[in-house]
Design a binder for these strands. Sequence first.
RNA 1: GCCGGAGUGGCGGAAUUGGCAGACGCAAGGGACUUAAAAUCCCUCGGGGGAAACCCCGCACGGGUUCGAAUCCCGUCUCCGGCACCA
Length: 842
Amino acid sequence: MKKRYEPGEIELKWQAIWAKKEENIFSSRVSNTKPKFYCLEMFPYPSGKIHMGHVRNYAIGDVIARYKRMRGYNVLHPMGWDSFGLPAENAAIKEGVHPAHWTHENISYMKKQLVRLGLSYDWSRELATCLPEYYRWNQWFFIKMFEKGIAYRKASFVNWCPSCSTVLANEQVTEGRCWRCESMVVQKELVQWFLRITDYQQELLDASDGLAGWPQKVVLMQKNWIGRSEGLEAIFRVDGSDDRIIVFTTRADTLFGAKFICLAPAHPLAEKFAEPDALAKIREHYGKADEKHGLFTGRYAINPANDEKIPIYVANFVLMEYGTGAIMSVPAHDQRDFEFAQKYGLPVKVVIRPDGGGEGGGEDVPAGKAFEEDGVLADSGQFTGLASAEARQKISGFIEGKGMGRRVVNYRLRDWGISRQRYWGTPIPIVYCERCGAVPVPEKDLPVVLPEDVKFTGKGASPLAESESFVDTVCPSCGGKARRETDTMDTFVDSSWYYVRYCSRKDEPALDKGNIGYFMPVDQYVGGVEHAVLHLLYSRFFMRVIRDLGLSNVSEPFQRLLTQGMVCMETIKCPEHGWLYPSEAEGGACAKCGRPVERGRTEKMSKSKRNVVDPDHLIKTYGADTARLFSLFAAPPENDLQWSEKGVEGAQRFIQRVWAFVHDNLEKLAAVKGQPPEGKSPLMRKTHQTIMRVTRDIEREYHFNTAIAAMMELLNMLAALEPSGQDDLRQMRFALERLLLMISPFCPHVAEELWEAIGMISSIQLEPWPGYDEEAAREEEIELVIQVNGKVRTKVMVPQGLPDEELKNRAMTLPRIQEAVSGKQIINVFAVKGRLVNIVVK
RNA sequence: GCCGGAGUGGCGGAAUUGGCAGACGCAAGGGACUUAAAAUCCCUCGGGGGAAACCCCGCACGGGUUCGAAUCCCGUCUCCGGCACCA
């Protein structure tokens, strides 16, 4: 054994050994003897190289997988590539490389990086979503959904990203910007394919309360996204016509205050009533968060509550996609309506007064803004004086009784638009025939493969539309001339079911019911919180479709979810040259101009801010074990992690100290024979305590940072020991073996190496997780804390397990306490859990 | 604006159920070894007072409940995340 710890050498050695043993170490088969555990990390987009976010994500997952293997589970721990998407196509436009080529190069490089990190994946299940054998099943799912009416086509206003020149789903727009490139999104009317996720909205909502293993934050985000609200649909007759306008409101209690009606610009009656040119102008402002624009139609509607005649407007801020596309406007109690009323000089009628706010004494017109809270009804006929909550029910009932409306539930969630006007995605398997319309490609003709003869110009319509060999086809139904759909699928379709594909090996058929039945659901899913509504909601939807296709009994794909925090690093800025790399700011001065630099905030690592750490460089300098250890030690997984070079060195120091301990004691330790003696010693006690703590910290919320801290404490004790005699050495060896076992999921290479060094023959991977004995972990003496009036006055060592009365007596006799209580009246004495005594005096 | 979450040393972070605030690590200071440096090892390390024993203050801020509060309740401030014309 070398004196120096050389990570590069030993890590490559063990990675080679593991690769040979892959069949029996990291691979998983359907097994009846062991319970299964499916551990999954979000698969990466093959962008070129892995980044520190991946390192952290996969280190967390790997510790869980390795730990569970040691606990005797049949662990499924797969990895693959989310390999369709825009960057590949953009590279093609910029550099002329084919997206497939670019993607496969990246995959092969990144796979090497993952292997180099010592991650224990079952590569026999590796998948790449851009391969026809994978996306064939996207097409298969699409056809099944088409047959069931879940996939359908409609024209609507959609989110269009001008920079990506494609459509985005609602979930993919953040603050009006594209989730990927941050360009402002515009509204465009297009015919698109949608998946009817709204069919499952109530089920998804109801089931979210059962997601006990998920961060509540994520559950809440999903619930808000689905956005259920209960209200009333009320019918407003159009004066002098048979037309009726249906509005949705959650505030039936304000119905008597409705002073006008607003229609969405795309509402059928808006087109019927409004003058086309004027309507077109309103439409220009649709979906934009700017000023409110209205157009009076010249028509009036009848308020079903009081038969009042109120004007009908078309307004840019009314959404066609939510509710009924028409609203009743109550300017006194809705801020938007208030602003609209102000602009167009419409009346404001107060029908809700603040609870307890003087009978009839309040002002009629709110001062400058609407009163939107609940209160007491005013000026509302027979309902005047009721509280809002009660009035909502009563007025809804009243309207229902008149046959002028009904209580309904509305959701904010929209159907998922999956059409993308790009090349590098799954072709939508539809053929358009003049006679038969949209016809699905028959299953036997799948996959519809992406054509190769495509030019990547970055301009115009879908690149697929340029490929005649692709577009021209025959109708599967009538054999006549037909054209293929040229849009591809949103890449979130690919990732909505990949965890199901992993249940079968590459060489086994996809979607095998037996395999799915054995491995699903995922027991632990680990990934970034940025997918809280996107990928995670789509997957919950897809799993239900898969269930309803009879392929699985599972509804929820992910039993437990861990959302890890971001990896952050300090930023450095020069007042003149902007963001700098640390190497450009040595000595606190900008390397370009010599001006002093500003230490910026610690922010998420990003290339643009130049605050990134390259995993390759990190591994080369410190090794994979150190990279993993630091990622896990510096913060609990759900927190953001602040990268620190010094912290990395600290992590490596720990590994080096373990190494040095084994090296320095190797001869003595190797000669040890037999078990440690019965009876307690500080080291034996500490060892059992450490196993207890580490086990508990991993089991409970995966708090690896405190688990590692506990192992460090054990090492500190071991290193301070000066053994004399065989019994001491036996204990030392016992403690060391357990320490190595506990370290092995975190730093698998060095654990293997040291395990071998102390004479163990089989791989440490195959060892069970060490057990502990609570009795052996128990302290014989405890430090009794004595407080007077809640303040610590002294501490004393006493035997473990004394009765409370005895503790109180002992406390009272202590000189320090005598002194503190002398001349005072003792009111009460508390003893707490055999650990603390509090004396209350006056 | 609405809905969540979080504020603990110079820093990252510990602290089962209300019961010793600051585990572990980083940084810093001192010392040992060395011709010297690195590495390593040892000691100190929340603030204030005191020669010391020890005392006072301290978990964003202000109140409260309690024998006892980082932990529970109310209010305020700050930061982070989500949603945002959703009727």
